Structure formats: C-alpha cells, structure tokens
Amino acid sequence: MYIIIIGGGKVGYYLTEHLLKAGNEVVVIEKNPKKVQIIINELGGVAIQGDGSDAGPMLEAGMNRADIVVAATGDDEDNLIICQMAKKKFNVKRTIARINNPKNEHIFSVLGIDSTVSYVDALVAQIEREIPAHSLIHLLTLRDVGAAFIEKQVPEDSPVIGIPMNELSIPQQFLIALVIREGQAIIPKGTTKLLGGDEVVAVTTLEQEDLLERLFRGELIRRQ
C-alpha cells in the first residue's frame, strides 16, 4: 500500500516508522529541512522537503497514485486543506487527518474527510489507562461541561524549566495531565520538572485556555 504522510514531526515520524516496518511504501512531506534530514538519516530516503499543502510537493510525492493520505501536521486548518486537495485534485480514495483541537472534529466530518484521529483523545486514553480506576475521572466527558484540552511545547527559554510542579501556583481548575518527553509519556507528580521541548497536555475551563502560556512565561511560579 502506498501512503503519503504530510508532517514529519513526532507523530509523522513514528507513524512512518511503524508503516515502513509493516511493509508499506511510505513518503513523508515536511517543510522543515532539519526534520527531513533526520527522517532520511534514520528511516531512509522517504522524505521530501516542501509545503504539504502545495500541489508541487504533492505531485513530486506521487499523490495521484496514493492509496491513503495522512495529514499529520500540528495545524488543523492545514490538515483540512491537505485532505481536501488530496481528494478533489488527486482523487485519493482515503484521507486521514490528525485533529489537534477536538472541537474541530465535526467540521472535518461535514467536509468529507474520511477519518480523523484526535491527538488529545489518544493522550487522554493513555492517561485513563495509567491512573488507577478508583481515582479515575473520565476526562473525555469534561467537554460537555465546558472543559478545554490544550497541548503546547515548553519553550527552550521558559522560566518554568527545572521547577518542580509543587512549587508552581497552579489554579484548582487547571490540570497538567500529561508530559511527553522524547516520545515517552510521563504522568506528572509534584516533583516532576518540565524541560525545554516537553509536550504538555493540560485540561482547564474554556475561559482559562491561556493558563498554559502564562505558565510557560513564568507567571505561575510561586514566589518565595
């Protein structure tokens, strides 16, 4: 099966690795030259540098013969455009889109995208497997009462780096649910320290979606 993946970040990389091991023909389109080189060095010559939402790289990758196109970038709008182009311009039979904001899932469905994968849903499912059942709150149900799931990367120069969680002034309505570091999931504890480049998944109310950015700016560090 010939599969084209748009987006060579962590999600795209590990998906490519898995599909290649399963015996599929895979090509990745990624605009960042450093990520392209990493993929080529570690997985072979399966990466093309370019904007995956442009027709040029799509033609170079041979999208007109692709069985499946996977839009795995970190931008929902780009993923929607990629899937629509794949279906309408190149007649790809099956498109799969990564959704970074679960609230966009209905839009993708209405606009004819065959399948969607919510990155947040997958992470929450992992959290639910890790937390003992007696203390488990099913986070997916929180959307019905106005919860927001946010995923952001810790900047390399963030003041919060190296500070234990229990030394942060985190409001009760804000939960750091998961930290992804070098491809490994970490369920944070009070002694957990964030590092530059960590992917942080937080759950909060819709009204306080900016709390994660404030945390990374150092505004929630407890002052002595």
Rank of each mutant, 00 (worst) to 15 (best):
Y2S: 08
I3C: 02
I3R: 00
I4C: 01
L15F: 03
L19E: 03
L20A: 03
L20Q: 05
K21D: 06
A22T: 10
N24Y: 14
E25H: 09
V26S: 07
V28N: 01
I29Y: 08
E30R: 07
E30H: 10
K31S: 15
P33E: 13
Q37D: 12
I39C: 04
I39N: 03
I40G: 11
N41W: 11
N41I: 10
L43T: 10
G50E: 09
G50A: 08
G50D: 10
D51E: 14
S53F: 13
D54M: 15
G56A: 15
G56K: 15
G56T: 15
E60A: 11
G62T: 15
M63W: 05
M63F: 12
N64F: 10
N64C: 00
R65M: 10
D67R: 14
D76H: 09
D78R: 08
D78H: 07
N79I: 08
I81Y: 08
Q84H: 13
M85I: 13
K89R: 12
N91L: 06
K93P: 03
I99A: 03
N100Q: 02
N101Q: 11
E105G: 06
H106D: 13
F108M: 12
V110C: 05
Y119G: 04
V120M: 08
V124S: 00
I127N: 04
R129M: 04
I131L: 02
P132V: 06
L136V: 02
D144M: 05
G146V: 08
A148I: 06
Q153F: 12
V154F: 01
P155H: 11
E156M: 09
E156D: 04
D157P: 03
D157L: 03
I161M: 12
P164I: 10
M165L: 11
N166Q: 12
E167A: 15
Q173D: 13
F174R: 09
L175T: 11
I180L: 14
I187S: 07
I187P: 00
P188F: 00
P188A: 02
K189A: 12
G196P: 04
E199L: 08
V200M: 01
V200L: 00
V203I: 04
Q208V: 01
D210G: 00
L211G: 00
L212E: 01
L212N: 03
E219L: 03
R222F: 01
R222W: 01
